[in-house]
């Protein structure tokens, strides 16, 4: 197993956001996490990425416990997070955003040229300030920035947020190329249809607990609806 999350709890002060969440991601696999607002999806990603503390062995990456590892150390082991709302570096150009993603110097297939080949729109705008791009282009920068670290596992938080459906389709169309390079994916998404199409395994979170888990093609709409809304 590339990633094993076992009985993970997460807290914001006194508020508990995750209750014993367990999840597994195999190498080369795409896993979707769905759930309503506030179900704990982003918290789960932040915990994996090291932005929130966990029990040391609640999260194992390639067998190594990373639960208490700081985010920069987690990143250097090969986990990249594409954060919700993209969060590009506003005072950096498009190319600088990509370069900073690659500053760890992890070896691998992804380079500036390959990211530009995957997202040709970015090559033309390399010297522009990141905030001047459209939402879809900004999402491409966020994806490219994560790819530049040649991650073994990429965490994508709400790629579709605030984007037009046609742009969302274009963005999701690039995921197979990323998986094909050997990077595993965890996709957090509110757009359930999109998530089911992109992933092989699906976990549904409800109020901080895993309400449903299974192979994407085996889950019925009824089961998902029940887990999603808790009815």
């Amino acid at each position: 197993m590339l990633l094993e999350v076992a009985a993970l709890d997460a807290f914001y002060g006194d508020f508990q956001a995750l209750f014993g969440v367990s999840l597994r991601v195999a190498a080369g696999e795409a896993v979707a996490i769905i759930g309503a607002n506030g179900a704990g999806k982003s918290t789960l990603l932040k915990s994996i990425a090291g932005l929130m503390r966990a029990r040391p062995d609640a999260i194992r990456f390639d067998g190594v416990p990373i639960g208490v590892m700081p985010a920069h150390a987690v990143a250097s082991r090969g986990i990249a997070l594409v954060p919700e709302g993209r969060r590009l570096f506003a005072s950096l150009t498009v190319e600088e955003n990509l370069l900073i993603g690659g500053q760890l110097g992890r070896p691998g297939r992804w380079t500036l040229q390959r990211v530009y080949a995957l997202f040709p729109a970015l090559a033309e705008r390399a010297r522009m300030p990141a905030p001047s791009l459209s939402g879809g282009q900004q999402q491409m920068v966020a994806l490219g920035r994560a790819l530049m670290s040649n991650p073994r596992l990429m965490l994508c938080d709400e790629l579709s947020l605030g984007l037009a459906p046609i742009v969302v389709r274009d963005i999701y169309a690039t995921l197979p190329a990323i998986l094909g390079q050997g990077t595993s994916l965890i996709i957090v998404e509110q757009d359930i249809a999109q998530a089911l199409k992109a992933a092989t395994q699906v976990y549904c979170l409800q109020e901080g607990r895993v309400a449903l888990a299974g192979a994407a093609r085996e889950l019925t709409r009824e089961a998902i609806a029940a887990a999603y809304f808790g009815v």
């Binding site: 990425a49 090291g50 932005l51 700081p70 985010a71 920069h72 990143a75 250097s76 990249a80 997070l81 954060p83 969060r87 570096f89 506003a90 005072s91 950096l92 600088e96 370069l99 900073i100 993603g101 500053q103 760890l104 920035r145 670290s149």
Partner: peptide, 24 residues
Amino acid sequence: TALGRAFRATADDPDVAQLMGLDN
């Protein structure tokens, strides 16, 4: 320079800078 880029990125968003492997 790469150092300056790291300075500016950390100034913009220290949390996300950590995700890039930068130790704040």
